[in-house]
Amino acid sequence: MTTQSSFECEQLCIDLPGAPGVRRIIENLDLEVGKGEFVSILGGSGTGKTTLLRALAGLTPYSGGRAAYEGRDVRSPVPGMAMVFQDYGHALLMWRTARRNVALGVEGRLGGDELDRKVQNAIRMVGLERFQDEYPWRLSGGMQQRVQIARALAMEPNALLMDEPFGALDAMTKASLQDQLLAVQAETGATVLFVTHDIEEAIYLSDTIIMLKGSPARIARRITVDLPRPRDQIATKELPEYLRLRHQLYEAFRHEIHA
């Protein structure tokens, strides 16, 4: 089983310093994510979704248990993994064009034609060809987020960690980026860990949904999404299975939504 898994957590505990003292965010969490799987981490705000993702990305230290990527403990960012932040405005370098932002992660070890090829491929995958020589601050939010996703893709990651990447975008841009992400995943076969608080987004994109609840957070539920691929914004969302999952998840979050 271990050769098949991309991410693994065993009894993972994460503490973060806060004003009143150290607070436990995640407690004794077990998780296994298979290679090429699309897993969404779903939960209300402040449940520790982002903290969990950041620990798996090697950006937040954990205090107990184990977090591993491809069998190795994660203590700092690991090659083969790429992170996409929600806050594209601060994650991009505003003084570099879109194309040079995409090159940032690979230009250190590649050069010439190979660099060009990888950058162009990443730009193509997110449909940024027309805007590659533009500065990010001249692009719309959706376009900026595409630049950030392309920057991650240029590194040809085996795993893509995304922290509410579409959280700040309008509904139409969001739908178009969701479809682009699904196409990218189908093309690259990358494992995707996707943090969101949007129930419908989680169902539409994922193979598996991990529901975080409580404080400190635990996995309240693990839901397998058995919807056919490729998915379609209209047809998939009219399937009885989609509606059943939607009902089930809204029911599970009902008290949090009303809170």
Binding site: L59, P77, A82, M83, D87, H90, A91, L93
Partner: peptide, 14 residues
């Protein structure tokens, strides 16, 4: 901004 520094870290820049 912390995100800028984390982006640099996660891209594994030296």
């Amino acid at each position: 901004h912390p995100t800028l520094l984390e982006a640099a870290r996660s891209l594994q820049l030296g």
